[in-house]
Amino acid sequence: MTLLKQKTVPVGHIEREAKSTPGDRAVAATSHVVLAIWSAIVVLPLLWTFMSSFKTSNEIFASPFALPGAWKLDNYIKAWSEAGIGAAFINSVIVVGVSLVLVMLLGAMCAYVLARFTFRGSRIIYVLMLAGLTFPIFLAMVPLFGVLKGMGLLNQLPGLIITYVAFALPFTVFFLFAFFKNLPGEIAEAAAIDGAGEWRTFFQIMLPMARPGLASVAIFNFLGLWNQFLIPVTINAGGPKVLSQELFAFAQQMGYAVDFGALFAAVTVTVIPVLIAYILFQRQLQGSVSQGTSR
C-alpha cells in the first residue's frame, strides 16, 4: 500500500540528467548494435519490396537487386485503376473503423469482467473464448454464411462488421485479460471506497489505466481486420468490396500474369495506410515507465 502513495511523486525526475557511467555506455552501445542488426534484417527486405514496386517484371527477373531503370509509377497506376482501390478503400475504412471501435469496447468490457471478478462460469467463458481461436475459420464459413443469410445481412457491410467484431473478440479478450489482470487492484479499491460505481470505475479509472495494452491490441486488431481476406471473400462476395478483397484478387491475378512489379505495387499500397495508422497510433505506447499507473 505504501507503493501507492509514492506514485504521485515522480521520484527520478530530478536525476534525469544524471551522468552515464562507462558501464552504461557499454550496455547502451551493445543494445544499439543488437537492435540495429535486427532493424536491418527487418528493413532490408522491405526496402527491396518497395524498390521492386517501381520496376518492370523484366527488370526484376534480370537482376533482383539493381535499381529500377526509371522511377515510374506505372505499376501503381495499374494497381489503382485495375484493382478499383478508390471505392474499396472507403469501404474498408468504414468496416474496419466501426468494427475496431466496437470490438475494442466489447472486448475490453468482457476481458475486464473476466479478469477482475470471480464468478461461477467465468472459467468456462474464458475457455470458450480460447476455443474460438483454435478452430480453422474456413471450416465455419458455410454455417456462418447460413446465419448471415438468415438475418438478411449477407453481402452487406453491417453483416461484415458484426462478423469482424465476433471473430476479433476472442483475440481481444484474450490479450486484454492479461493487461487487466496485471493492473494493481488498489486503485479500483480506492475508487470503490470513494463511492464510485462499477460503471464509473471501469470507464474513468480502469480503462485509461490499460491504455498501453488497449493501444497495442487495437493496432493488432486493425491489422488483422484490414488484411482479413477469407471472411469477406466468402460472405461478402457479392457485396460492396473491401480493400483486401480487391487487392488480394489483384495480387493473385498478377501472379498468374507474372507481373511482379504490379504485384509489389499492390503490396505496397496495402501496407502504406497500415504503416501510417501504426505510426500515428504507436505514440500511445510511448511515455515514461510509470505512465501506466499515473494515467
Binding site: 464459413m141 458455410v142 447460413g146 466468402t234 462476395a237 484478387a249
Partner: peptide, 16 residues
C-alpha cells in the same frame, strides 16, 4: 463477376 478463389467463394452457395 470475377473471382480468384472459386472454391472458398462458391462452397456455401453450392452447399446452400
Amino acid at each position: 463477376n470475377p473471382s480468384t478463389a472459386i472454391s472458398t467463394e462458391l462452397q456455401p452457395r453450392f452447399a446452400g
